[in-house]
Write a protein that binds this DNA or RNA. Structure first.
Length: 201
DNA sequence: AAGTTTCAATTCTTACATCA
DNA sequence: CTGATGTAAGAATTGAAACT
């Protein structure tokens, strides 16, 4: 396994985990109860409207998130008192931070898969054009063989020891594959083959 | 079975940008 | 400048599922 595959394999469980939980909800799509607006009013939990954590608070939270994405209850209380926040706020911050982290990972995995996909498409194009070139070569070879065959037929009735007969004999491999007919047959049929299907022939 | 925790989805607020 | 409007980011809530 190469590095990219390694990383993708590492992150991939995120997809299954995410999708396994999203799917049932999408299927049912129950309506959610709307929350009452609390415009400029009192927040039931904090007594006053308190929003937007300070940069310093965020920095400390980020530092702790960097070490451990999950929050032990003890650590939550300690952080909360250290930052002058409600423990609930710390818990919510970690929860939202985990969600953002997960989204970021999914985006990263998506762009990795996309670049792998682009590479594969490019390689497919290259192989297809190679197949086309080989088919053209094959076609030319067949025409040459046919020309030689016709000359052999024309001359053999007059002179069995002519140089043309010898030319024909220089390609003994053709006879091992059952003669010209099979070769022609393959070449004609393979003109309408796309992708790598021709290999099955 | 009831309480707790976690998660995805959603709502709501804030800050900032743009435009008339 | 200023107020209206749009929008991205993130704080907070909700309900369901998993866990204890």
């Amino acid at each position: 396994m190469n590095k990219v595959e390694d990383e993708v394999a590492l992150i991939s469980p995120l997809y299954s985990a995410a999708f396994s939980q999203i799917a049932p909800q999408q299927a049912e799509a129950k309506p959610r109860r709307r929350r009452n607006r609390n415009k400029g009013g009192e927040d039931s939990r904090f007594g006053a409207k308190k929003r937007k954590l300070t940069q310093e608070q965020v920095d400390v939270l980020e530092l702790n998130f960097g070490n451990e994405h999950k929050l032990e209850s003890e650590k939550k209380d300690r952080l909360a008192s250290e930052l002058g926040l409600d423990p609930r706020q710390v818990a919510v911050w970690f929860q939202n931070r985990r969600a953002r982290w997960k989204n970021k990972k999914l985006e990263e995995e998506f762009s990795k898969l996309q670049s792998i996909h682009d590479g594969v498409v490019l390689e497919k194009c290259r192989l297809e054009s190679e197949v086309m070139k080989l088919k053209e070569k094959l076609c030319e070879a067949q025409k040459e063989i046919q020309r030689l065959g016709e000359r052999v037929d024309g001359v053999s009735s007059n002179s069995p020891s002519s140089s043309l007969t010898m030319e024909a004999m220089d390609a003994p491999f053709l006879f091992e594959f059952g003669g010209y007919e099979d070769v022609f047959c393959i070449a004609e049929n393979s003109y309408n083959i796309h992708g790598m299907e021709w290999m099955n022939l």
